[in-house]
Design a binder for these strands. Structure first.
Lengths: 259, 259
DNA sequence: GTTGACCCTGACCTCGGGTCAGGCCTCACA
DNA sequence: TGTGAGGCCTGACCCGAGGTCAGGGTCAAC
């Protein structure tokens, strides 16, 4: 009769795990150390193997190692209860992953990043109306920001945008404002443009409908600033233009938050 | 005009992540460090926030952080390709988790651990035949081992067991062998029992059908030993009894592997 | 002027193992 | 009877995606 029991490599192969994994289970107390042969090698008997298979089965089912020990040593009732608990957690994770995959599907639709169809239609309309692709890109970013920061107002923003695009005068003014990026911040045309923009906005009530909901709390003011002044920091002239417009609106009684 | 940009806490809250997560993204180059205010605090502008939202969206979809940087900086085509790849991986993980959950469901069916219905029927039959519950438990363990170590032979093992249980003489001898655990290993009754067992096995060809498939390769011999000698190490008398039976079978020409 | 909320960096912890280093043991073949 | 390949031993460090703790600075309000 030779030495009793199989070596760690054989045990691991039988159980379908690696040697390192078996030693890991020993270190964490999931498996008792088996006896050692004369050269110090671990030797696994059938009872050891049985336990290893049970541990591996639970681990493969996603049970955290820290729970497996008490689980296997518990009585049948608690064992069953714990298993349904683990199963519930697995179900949750599956639902979570499926939700992630759905998000990803939306992302994967070309460059139509993160935006609902209605927003994409507005962006397409901008292109049709002859806006600079860079301007369209900046609007797209602003809409992505709006969706993330104030999703409950996205539809209102879009309604406002749609109204504004229906007004040829506003379209024209906006194009000129966009071109103004490269002007000197103190170019007198900026003041003219600001006045024209403010007049247009004040003349069309529906062009100004949105901010009302976003003014109440401090966080909302921050969100408003981030969305409405996106990319402004890249063009000082634009900063000044917007400030002038906002000042005129304020003096006309429109409540525009300070950034 | 106060300091431009929001603090890290606000940015994190807007994006739905923790402050630590944002700093983690900085450390790993996914997000450029924003400018700092006079007291060294990070201040995030709308472009920083936009990037953070994009990173968080991809991370939430399960894209490894190490890939997100190049993904967001890549052109649209590679971006789309990478996204479908990520989606495939997600789908695989979902399928994997569902498989785990199914395994778990099987485990959760009471104490009927890891065994198919046919095996459970055999175990129930053992109880009906009046075997000691401990004996039934050891047989259950042996079947679990057999299923894990030699699944392709489990049905053959079960067939053999069923045949043996149909033979009242064999049932009787097995019960006596089980009782023999507590005897002295050199009790003369052990020799008698071994002879009777060997005679019974030799007289009924179908009681010996199984081992044939398991003898060829060295691994199979080990598996055979582990399954057939399970729990033997806990009762030296049993070890001797089995050795005697195997010796008689060998001298009768039955090829039993040495352990 | 103090309290509490927020921010800074840096170091260590998690989980389920993988990988490497350095050395001992066993087996098969010549 | 050597010798080379491969298996085993321990211990230490590594991964991802952050969490937690320690020790301190800053800011706004009361």
């Amino acid at each position: 009769m030779t030495t009793r029991g199989v070596t760690i490599g054989q045990a691991a192969a039988f159980a379908g795990v690696t040697i390192k994994t078996v030693r890991h289970y020993h270190q964490h107390g999931l498996l008792d150390e088996p006896h050692r042969d004369s050269s110090g090698y671990r030797r696994y008997g059938s009872a050891d193997l049985l336990r290893l298979i049970q541990v591996r089965t639970l681990a493969a089912a996603g049970v955290p190692l820290a729970e497996i020990g008490s689980l296997l040593d518990a009585d049948t009732e608690r064992f069953a209860a714990a298993l349904t608990d683990v199963e519930q957690r697995l179900t949750d994770r599956i639902a979570d992953l499926i939700a992630r995959r759905d998000t990803l599907r939306q992302l994967a639709d070309g460059d139509r990043l993160l935006l609902p169809d209605r927003a994409l239609a507005v962006l397409d309309r901008l292109t049709e109306l002859g806006f600079d692709p860079e301007y369209v890109a900046s609007k797209r970013e602003a809409l992505v920001l709006a969706r993330a920061l104030a999703p409950e107002f996205l539809d209102l923003f879009l309604t406002q945008l749609e109204h504004r695009l229906d007004d040829p005068e506003f379209v024209d003014l906006t194009k000129r404002a966009w071109d103004a990026r490269s002007w000197d911040p103190h170019d007198p045309r900026i003041d003219e443009l600001a006045s024209a923009l403010a007049d247009n906005l004040l003349a069309h009530h529906e062009h100004l409908a949105v901010p009302a909901g976003l003014r109440s709390q401090s966080d909302d003011v921050i969100r408003y600033g981030l969305i409405n002044h996106h990319r402004e920091d890249q063009a000082p002239t634009w900063t000044r233009l917007n400030a002038l417009v906002e000042a005129e609106l304020r003096s006309a009684g429109v409540p525009i938050p300070y950034q």
